[in-house]
């Protein structure tokens, strides 16, 4: 993972990360921490709860957790980056999960991933600046005959070649356009 990419996504979240939201996140984190003992073994349950509440694990939350458990901050970061279930960026409105399991790999899943990266202009594990999409990879979702698979909002899409990536994005754009018109009316 590229350390530089993170600073970009942090800036990306721009307006949403207001002081107000930060304070609210902090309150939520502290409330969750209160219900846990200071044992190191509580780390993963705490991380899961905080992420369930906040949607992701902000830097400040990881620091609070480290202080609560009396462990180095890097240990919290190590666990968060080790497990796929934890995210360092706020989730987007739509989740894009590109399968890189064996079958999808053979069918060019990495090409599909590249197409997503190029179209959304983000790396895996990141969220677009407008918070519409977040991109990540998974290792096999169990429908290998459809390889290469991308799971879009929990719905597996089969044979996702780069052209289909464009198609899926176009569908979202149309949907958004329709919604926009509705609100205008």
């Amino acid at each position: 993972m590229n350390p530089k990419a993170k600073t970009v996504t942090q800036n990306n979240t721009g307006e949403e990360v207001s002081a107000e939201k930060e304070a609210r996140d902090r309150q939520e984190t502290l409330k969750i921490l209160k219900s846990f003992g200071r044992k190191r073994e509580n780390l993963i349950p705490i991380l899961q709860k905080v992420q369930a509440r906040l949607g992701y694990l902000p830097r400040e939350a990881m620091m609070e957790i480290a202080t609560h458990l009396g462990i180095p901050e890097i240990d919290v970061y190590g666990v968060v980056t080790f497990y796929n279930q934890f995210r360092l960026n706020p989730p987007g409105k739509h989740s894009i999960r590109v399968c890189l399991g064996t079958a999808c790999h053979m069918k060019g899943g990495y090409i599909t991933l590249d197409a997503w990266k190029r179209r959304l202009d983000i790396n895996q594990g990141e969220t677009t600046p407008d918070r519409e999409f977040d991109l990540d990879t998974v290792a096999c979702v169990g429908c290998c005959t459809m390889a290469p698979v991308t799971v879009v909002d929990n719905q597996p899409e089969g044979k996702v070649e780069p052209t289909k990536v464009d198609g899926i994005l176009l569908a979202f754009e149309l949907e958004r356009g329709a919604e926009g018109q509705k609100t205008v009316r």
Binding site: M1, P3, M62, P72, I74, V76, T81, F82, Y83
Partner: peptide, 13 residues
Amino acid sequence: AHRGFQRMVTTFE
């Protein structure tokens, strides 16, 4: 931090 081939000795974030 990080996993698999990406594993590295690093600092917080």
